[in-house]
Amino acid sequence: MAISFGISAQAAGIPGLAAIAMSAFVYAGSAQFAAVAILAQGGSVAAAVLAAALMNARYLAMGVAIGPSLKGGRTRRALEGQAVVDASWALANRGEGRFDRHTLFGSSAPQYVTWLGGTVVGVLAGGILPHPENLGIDAIFPAFFLALLLGELKTAEAGAVAIGGAAVALVVGLMAPAGIGILAASAVALIGAVRAR
Rank of each mutant, 00 (worst) to 15 (best):
A2H: 10
I3M: 13
S4I: 15
G6S: 08
I7E: 06
G16T: 03
L17M: 13
A21N: 05
M22K: 02
S23R: 01
A24W: 09
V26G: 07
Y27T: 08
A28W: 02
A28Y: 11
A31E: 08
A31G: 13
Q32V: 00
F33S: 04
A34W: 06
A34V: 07
V36D: 04
G42E: 10
S44Y: 00
S44T: 15
V49R: 02
A52R: 02
A53P: 03
N56W: 06
A57W: 06
A57G: 04
R58D: 08
Y59F: 15
L60I: 14
L60Q: 01
M62Y: 14
S69N: 13
L70F: 10
L70E: 11
K71C: 03
K71W: 01
R76H: 10
E80S: 06
A83T: 01
D86I: 00
D86K: 00
S88Q: 05
W89H: 12
W89I: 00
L91F: 12
E96T: 04
G97I: 08
F99M: 05
D100H: 02
R101M: 03
T103Y: 12
F105A: 12
G106W: 10
G106N: 06
S107H: 11
Q111G: 10
Y112R: 00
L116E: 04
A125S: 12
A125H: 10
A125T: 01
G126S: 05
G126I: 00
I128N: 02
P132H: 10
P132N: 05
P132V: 07
N134G: 13
N134H: 14
L135A: 11
L135F: 03
G136N: 12
G136A: 04
I137P: 02
I137E: 07
D138F: 00
I140G: 08
I140Q: 05
P142L: 02
A147G: 09
A147M: 13
L150P: 03
A156P: 01
A160D: 04
V161K: 03
A162P: 05
I163L: 15
G164T: 05
A167M: 11
V171K: 03
V171C: 06
L174E: 12
P177A: 13
G179I: 00
I180P: 01
A184I: 10
S186R: 00
L190F: 14
L190S: 07
A193E: 09
V194D: 01
V194L: 13
R195Q: 10
R195M: 12
R195W: 11
R195P: 03
R195D: 02
